[in-house]
């Protein structure tokens, strides 16, 4: 087990008919590692992220978490049971938050732990209070999502995912839908998670965030991993022309962030 990588993606391939969006991608993520996936839109980075918890199933290839294949081919019933168990271990945060609007902040956080882990209301409440304190949302615990700003919604969405005590967190452009002034509060929460050594895979357009928080940057384009390495290497000395072109467009932004 010690030699098995924490997350392993092997020969991931995905096609919609003729269109191949992921072309034989293999990569590993170690426990506690924070990996950013960057690249132009349409490069397949979100598709790859969504394949990790089998939200967008791969056409072929394997996703393995701690030696257990996530996207196992099983008869329907068994697959459902298996994938629900796997997904409990993989938190995901979406671009558009996807909070449940008919539930309060507290209920958003407690629903899954109560339903899936059988937590009592009292225990679930305690858990919600902890998780919401963690993201600085304690004061809004009995609000509805419609009463929150975008940044607050995303922090609650992170707390909701963390309440399931996942081993791995996936972020799918978590700050892209936010007004610029609200990005920082979400980034701070993600930085805090990074300091706590949560394993995170982050699809992002924010180069400065990727550079300052992540251990490794993966640059994707056209459904392949073009280049990967520590941010200092990928951002400062990219070897591939496609990476250079992409970074040039984002450089002003990046330079500003990195100072």
């Amino acid at each position: 087990m010690t030699d098995t990588p924490f997350v392993q993606i092997r020969h991931a391939q995905k096609a919609y008919g003729e269109l191949e969006v992921l072309k034989d991608i293999s990569l590993t993520v170690e426990r506690g590692e924070i990996v950013a996936i960057i690249g132009p839109s349409g490069s397949g980075k979100s598709t790859l992220l969504r394949a990790i918890n089998d939200l967008d199933p791969l056409t072929s290839g394997e996703v393995i978490l701690e030696g257990v294949q996530v996207n196992k081919q099983l008869p329907h019933r068994q697959y459902e049971k298996h994938i629900n168990e796997m997904r409990q271990q993989i938190g995901m945060v979406f671009q558009h938050f996807n909070l449940f609007p008919h539930l309060t902040v507290r209920e958003n956080v407690t629903m899954a732990p109560k339903l899936l882990k059988g937590l009592s209301s009292a225990d679930a409440d305690k858990l919600a209070e902890e998780q919401l304190a963690h993201v600085g949302m304690s004061e809004r615990i009995d609000y509805y999502p419609s009463q929150l700003s975008g940044g607050q919604k995303q922090r609650v969405a992170i707390a909701r995912a963390l309440a399931m005590k996942p081993k791995l967190m996936l972020f799918d452009e978590a700050t892209s839908a936010l007004d610029p002034e609200l990005v920082e509060e979400v980034n701070l929460v993600m930085k805090k998670l990074a300091e706590e050594h949560m394993t995170m895979i982050i699809v992002t357009h924010e180069m400065d965030f990727a550079a300052s928080v992540c251990d490794r940057v993966i640059f994707m384009d056209g459904g392949v991993v073009v280049e990967e390495g520590p941010p200092s290497v990928v951002f400062q000395n990219p070897t591939q022309e496609r990476t250079q072109n992409f970074l040039r467009k984002h450089l002003a932004q990046y330079a500003e962030g990195a100072k």
């Binding site: 629900n84 168990e85 997904r87 938190g91 979406f94 996807n98 449940f100 899954a112 995912a161 399931m164």
Partner: peptide, 12 residues
Amino acid sequence: GQMEAARTLGLS
């Protein structure tokens, strides 16, 4: 996204 978010948490 509502169904996706719920499924992601592990709900059937």
